[in-house]
């Protein structure tokens, strides 16, 4: 019975709700720490209390739904490529800062095209190259912002 309950427990959902509650509690403490004047708390505090109440209500509902066996019925299994693309996106973000916009864009495009099922290497290479040149150098020409690149120095 205990094993079945564990299997059916919607840990992902519960974690998200706990995260939202923790965020609100932390935010309230942060604002309270700066100033406890009513002007500072008149909107933040009610929001935190509402979030706490709603979060608790959802968690209780989740717990109660364990018996009804409905909690995870509608959830689709996660395609393994979703966390991989998420990881690639995070790596792309880090790469933009440390490697440069051009190389990181090219690498992200190549990786994600491959992950998405494109197996023709020449297509992966030329598409990634063309889009990188178009987007990164287009951005550099368009906005008056520094666009760090790996291969070509700032003009």
């Amino acid at each position: 019975m205990k094993e079945n309950l564990l299997k059916r427990t919607d840990f992902g959902h519960a974690t998200f709700v706990v995260f939202v509650i923790c965020f609100h509690v932390w935010f309230l403490i942060d604002v309270w720490g700066v100033s406890s004047r009513i002007e500072h708390l008149m909107f933040v505090a009610p929001l935190a209390f509402v979030a706490f109440g709603l979060g608790a209500f959802i968690l209780i509902s989740l717990y109660k739904s364990l018996d009804s066996q409905t909690s995870q019925v509608n959830l689709k299994p996660i395609d393994i490529r979703i966390p991989l693309i998420m990881f690639a996106l995070c790596a792309y973000l880090v790469g933009m800062v440390f490697v440069g916009f051009d190389l990181s864009t090219f690498l992200f495009l190549s990786c994600s095209l491959w992950l998405m099922g494109e197996r023709r290497l020449w297509v992966i290479f030329f598409y990634s190259f063309a889009l990188t040149v178009f987007c990164v150098f287009g951005l550099r020409e368009m906005v008056s912002l520094p666009v760090p690149t790996f291969f070509f120095a700032e003009t």
Binding site: L131, V143, L145
Partner: peptide, 28 residues
Amino acid sequence: PLRFLIPTVMVMALLGSYAHTGNMVGPA
């Protein structure tokens, strides 16, 4: 095909948000 569209839109979204905020806060 989505295998081209998804990475393309993601790149445009990140670079566009960089243009919007003017720093890495946008892409992050």
